[in-house]
Amino acid sequence: MASLVLKMSVSLDGYVATLDGSSDWIAAGDSDDTLDWTVQTVSDAGAHLMGATTYAVMAAYYPNDSGPFAKPMNDIPKVVFSHSLTSADWDETTIAAGDLAESIKRLKQEHSDGYLLAHGGARFARSLVETGLIDEYRLLVHPAVLGAGERIFPVPLTLEPKSTTVFSGGAVAHVFAAQP
């Protein structure tokens, strides 16, 4: 059975998105070792899970990209959770339109290669957190303070630290196991 991993970029003050949707803050702390860690996380996935908004952004970019994320993003199967999408043009993509928790449980049973890697949008990530089905959180904390924005933790959680990696540019990756 596959585990569900949520990978998110987070500001020092706990936000995952700005109110205006800008994403330039995510570049804070970038370095080659941060890139290597992120590419490895993406490459080791058995499937990529995302909401419709993240799908639209990624599907418009990765099929024509040749950067380090292109191969894993294009080759590894993708599942888009949406009640409005009826088709997906990006290769290796299926749409899950049913109940989020039931779909996640089914995908965990179906996949045995790698983990299911959820890519947020804040709203999709919050919905996943609320299901209680996330097994591991990989939070890349950037040296940026947003002051306001969107958070992903709507409920209290108990998390067990698994690892912390400090990168040369100042970003820090915290990996936590979810506790029941």
Rank of each mutant, 00 (worst) to 15 (best):
S112I: 05
E110A: 00
L107F: 12
T93M: 14
E92R: 13
E110C: 02
G114T: 10
F124N: 07
I95D: 09
L116E: 02
D91W: 04
D113R: 11
Q109R: 14
R106F: 03
S112H: 08
D113W: 00
E102C: 02
G121R: 00
A122E: 05
K108P: 10
A96N: 13
I95A: 10
T93W: 14
D113F: 02
A96S: 12
L100W: 05
A125G: 10
R106Y: 03
Q109A: 10
H111G: 00
S103W: 06
L100P: 12
E110H: 03
R123F: 09
K108M: 01
E102F: 03
K108C: 06
A101M: 05
A118D: 04
T93G: 14
A96I: 02
R123D: 15
R106C: 04
Y115L: 04
H119E: 07
R106A: 11
R123P: 04
A122L: 00
S112F: 03
R123N: 15
T94K: 08
Y115T: 12
R106D: 12
I104A: 12
L107M: 11
I95C: 15
D113L: 09
G114Q: 15
R126A: 07
A97I: 08
H111R: 04
Q109I: 05
L100D: 10
A122H: 02
T94Y: 02
E102H: 09
L107N: 13
R106L: 10
L117G: 12
S112Q: 11
L116P: 08
K105V: 08
H119K: 06
L117R: 05
S103T: 13
G98W: 12
R126S: 09
R123I: 07
A118G: 06
E110M: 02
A118V: 04
E92M: 10
I104L: 13
E110K: 08
Q109K: 11
R106S: 12
L116V: 05
A122N: 07
L117Q: 15
S112P: 01
K105F: 02
K105C: 12
E92G: 06
G120V: 03
K108L: 01
L116R: 01
S112V: 11
L107E: 10
T93I: 14
G120P: 11
E102M: 14
K105P: 07
T94D: 01
Y115R: 11
G121V: 01
G121A: 13
Q109V: 06
G121S: 14
K105I: 15
Q109C: 00
R106W: 13
A118Y: 05
A101S: 00
A122D: 02
L116W: 05
A97F: 09
A122S: 11
D99G: 00
A122I: 05
D99P: 02
R126P: 03
A122G: 03
Q109L: 07
K105S: 15
A122M: 02
K108V: 03
F124D: 04
K108F: 08
G120T: 01
Q109E: 08
L117M: 13
T94F: 04
R126N: 05
S103Q: 15
E102G: 15
